[in-house]
């Protein structure tokens, strides 16, 4: 499937590179952006919000049964990139995208693509929790209902319960499933949104900072969930926590000002970053 030759370029750090800006030569991604068994293949993706060039020529694979984490300073385009993967950016009028993104070899931006089915296959957990103003139960049952995943009420109950259990929320809400989802705390809402997404049974899950409002216990719970999900699915996770990226992901991609600066095995990135910017970022010199 993948035609492009993996590029590996060793970066030689030099003294002049202490500021955030990167020169022309630095636009090439350092490291191998392909995956052995890719489910997603993004090639030369550019995203513009009106005149703002938010993603610049990014090529990146997402492998099956793998977790890839996207890291990088705020505003570098991580959310924008994962929202391209299930065409969430279609809902933003000013957004324009060029390049190619293949899901199982099929161009998701082609005319034949069924966007609604695409989003059922590629679930997303948004950066800001956005529960529906419905009951907790109805929030989780929303996807299964519209896709007809349950034949009867008992099956629906099962799906709701197991989704909430896997998101680590069941014990907190099992006695008040009819309460509005918007009445939960921020962290609970975040887990509700995760439960809502996995209830549909997607093949790929895009998670945009899913643990930003969670305590360490709930975070550990979600990380367990990610481990469990990756047995069957692919996961893309955006995170600002280096430790989390190191714990849950097999590959890590470092974004910088819209460019994909470096991508590689998580172990390599964190122990031996090739790009000066990556090194600066993970050692906490900025970001």
């Amino acid at each position: 499937m993948s035609q492009s030759v993996p590029k590996t370029k060793t970066h030689v750090p030099d003294e002049t590179e202490n500021d955030l800006s990167i020169g022309e030569s630095e636009h090439k991604t350092v490291g191998d952006y392909t995956a052995k068994e890719p489910i997603f293949q993004a090639r030369n993706v550019n995203v513009y919000y009106a005149d703002n060039h938010a993603i610049k020529d990014v090529s990146l694979d997402v492998g099956v049964n793998q977790v890839i984490s996207l890291i990088g300073p705020s505003g570098c385009g991580k959310s924008t990139f994962i929202r391209c993967l299930n065409r969430m950016n279609d809902t933003i009028d000013s957004a324009r995208i060029t390049g190619e993104i293949l899901l199982d070899g099929e161009d998701i931006y082609s005319r034949e693509m069924d966007v609604v089915m695409l989003r059922a296959r590629v679930g997303i957990v948004f950066q800001k929790p956005n529960p529906f103003p419905k009951s907790i139960f109805d929030n989780v049952a929303y996807g299964p209902r519209i896709h007809g995943l349950a034949r009867n009420r008992a099956e629906l109950d099962d799906i709701v319960q197991s989704s909430l259990e896997r998101a680590g929320l069941w014990s907190e809400v099992k006695d008040r499933l009819t309460d509005p989802g918007t009445g939960l705390s921020g962290g609970q809402q975040q887990r509700l949104c995760i439960a809502r997404t996995i209830a549909v049974g997607p093949e790929v899950i895009l998670m945009d900072e899913p643990c930003s409002a969670l305590d360490p216990i709930a975070t550990a719970r979600i990380e367990d969930l990610i481990d469990e999900l990756k047995q069957n699915f692919a996961i893309v996770i955006v995170t600002h926590s280096m430790q989390q990226a190191a714990r849950v992901s097999q590959r890590t991609a470092y974004f910088h000002l819209g460019y994909l600066a470096e991508v590689g095995d998580t172990n390599d990135i964190f122990t031996n970053p090739q790009h000066k910017l990556t090194e600066d970022y993970i050692t906490g010199r900025f970001g």
């Binding site: 299930n86 969430m88 809902t91 609604v116 089915m117 695409l118 989003r119 059922a120 296959r121 679930g123 997303i124 948004f126 800001k128 956005n130 529960p131 529906f132 103003p133 419905k134 929303y142 996807g143 519209i146 896709h147 949104c193 809502r196 997404t197 549909v200």
Partner: peptide
């Protein structure tokens, strides 16, 4: 807008989103 996105993100069509999320809200 986040509610629309939440519904689209679960694979709902536009009219399902209107009927199930927007009109009730």
């Amino acid at each position: 807008q986040a509610l629309r996105e939440g519904s689209f993100g679960l694979g709902a069509t536009h009219s399902e989103t209107i009927r199930l999320v927007l009109l009730p809200a």
